[in-house]
């Protein structure tokens, strides 16, 4: 019962945030559906080579956010996610990805006009490929 989460202790992010963000993304993107049974604390910890303490924190915090629910003795499940949360998540995911890209552009001294031009160009390219049969 593995789920596609990959963490690395070489990353700058703490293990807790890596796991929480990836699990949240899997739920909000609809890859893990309502009622999906997550691995036990120990199983998940061993698969990701982190401690059960971290897994417990991730499950508890996502439960507080309403993304997970736990039932005594049976385990932790994916909860029903409202459309408002999905909308918020979509906005935030796009916002954060663009922010990162724009920060990189600034670091390499790319002027704002050029950034806008690149974004416009990419949109046109994708729109065009959408119209073409594959």
């Amino acid at each position: 019962m593995r789920i596609p989460i990959h963490v690395s202790s070489d990353s700058a992010e703490p293990l807790y945030s890596q796991i929480k963000e990836q699990l949240r993304a899997l739920i909000l993107s609809g890859h893990l559906k309502e009622g999906y049974l997550l691995p036990s604390n120990r199983e998940f910890a061993a698969d990701l080579a982190c401690s059960v303490i971290t897994i417990r924190r991730v499950y508890q915090d996502l439960e507080k956010e309403g993304l997970l629910r736990s039932r005594q003795g049976t385990g932790t499940f994916v909860a029903k996610v409202g459309s408002e949360e999905l909308e918020q998540y979509r906005y935030k995911a796009v916002h954060d990805a663009l922010q990162e890209a724009i920060e990189l552009a600034y670091r390499v001294q790319c002027p704002p006009e050029e950034i806008r031009a690149i974004v416009e160009q990419l949109i046109q390219l994708l729109e065009k490929s959408k119209g073409e049969p594959k």
């Binding site: 202790s9 703490p14 293990l15 401690s51 971290t54």
Partner: peptide, 26 residues
Amino acid sequence: WKLADYVAFLYEGRLIGTYEKDELKD
């Protein structure tokens, strides 16, 4: 890395540090 939740370091018969594993990794 795969199994531990806590790591206790032992040296010359004494504990020289006890940590939550992920505290070491992070």
